[in-house]
């Protein structure tokens, strides 16, 4: 179980981890609209970073910059530098397809493919050639489903369509699918907004476990969720990054008056 009083001990080991993604002076435009201004963020390895803020503040847009998902939107333009392990991901030589294999993503709405549960999880490993044999692929599928806490429910129905699962199971399937590709960073865009409290708790527990191997970035509308799962929190407001710091600090001792207003429920 996770308790808020663990925030203190969690902050301790953070000094030892290194920066995974470093964003400097990021601007995003949708056509004429300036959606994101001057965002500087360092995302640490093996840490859960939460993006909070009112709707439309640009936190999802910024998240989608981190694996160049915004490339699929024709009118979207990104400026500034985003470094993954010191390499500029917007460099011309970087293939967005390979980048997305390293930076996985889980979406707000569960979006399983119209395929069997097995094929859903095996999708990434297959297209990236991660398994040399059927047995190895079976292994990856089982491991991923176990990590997503879906194995016990799904092991007898692997050949059934993923779309037949319940909403919470579908979202865990999508997480399993993302994990199966062995990404280094996992981006989660409000992964629990379509889930009931029980499924939410399962996913949150999962996020805490994933932190052992990955750097996780989660966008959330729920401040309780941010407080429960993250070690670092960034508060976005009207396209700008207002405050970024340790989760405990942000929630107990915010520096900016806007952050305080938001977490106490006065704006948002």
């Amino acid at each position: 179980m996770m308790k808020d009083n663990r925030i203190e001990e969690r902050t301790v080991d953070m000094d030892m981890t290194e920066t995974k993604i470093s964003a400097r002076n990021v601007q995003v435009y949708y056509g004429e609209t300036h959606a994101i201004r001057d965002v500087d963020v360092d995302i640490l390895d093996k840490t859960v970073t939460a993006f909070i803020g009112p709707s439309g503040c640009g936190k999802s847009t910024f998240l989608r910059c981190l694996n160049r998902m915004n490339d699929t939107i024709p009118i979207c333009r990104v400026e500034g530098t985003i470094l993954l392990d010191g390499e500029d991901i917007y460099d011309k030589r970087v293939d967005p397809v390979q980048l997305r294999a390293r930076v996985g993503m889980v979406f707000q709405k569960p979006n399983p493919f119209p395929k069997s549960i097995y094929d859903n999880v095996a999708y990434g490993p297959r297209i990236h050639g991660l398994a040399r044999s059927k047995a190895e692929l079976d292994d990856i599928v089982e491991k991923s489903l176990r990590r997503a806490a879906l194995w016990s429910e799904a092991k007898d129905r692997l050949d059934q369509p993923g779309t037949g699962l319940s909403g919470g199971q579908q979202q865990r399937l999508c997480i399993a699918r993302a994990v199966a590709t062995e990404p280094e960073v996992l981006l989660m865009d409000e992964p629990c907004s379509a889930l009931d409290p029980i499924a939410t708790a399962q996913v949150e527990e999962l996020i805490d476990e994933l932190r052992r191997d990955y750097s996780v970035v989660i966008v959330t509308h729920s401040m309780q969720q941010a407080a429960r799962v993250s070690q670092k929190t960034a508060f976005f407001h009207l396209g700008s990054l207002v405050e970024f710091g340790e989760t405990g600090e942000i929630f107990t001792n915010p520096q900016d008056p806007r952050t305080e207003s938001y977490i106490t429920g006065r704006i948002g």
């Binding site: 397809v97 979006n111 493919f113």
Partner: peptide, 25 residues
Amino acid sequence: QAVRDGSYGLGATQSETIRQVILPA
């Protein structure tokens, strides 16, 4: 679009997405 995003988010190319996700759907 969510299904396409899911596939792109896993690092699939456009033609892989079309062949393996969109056409079956």
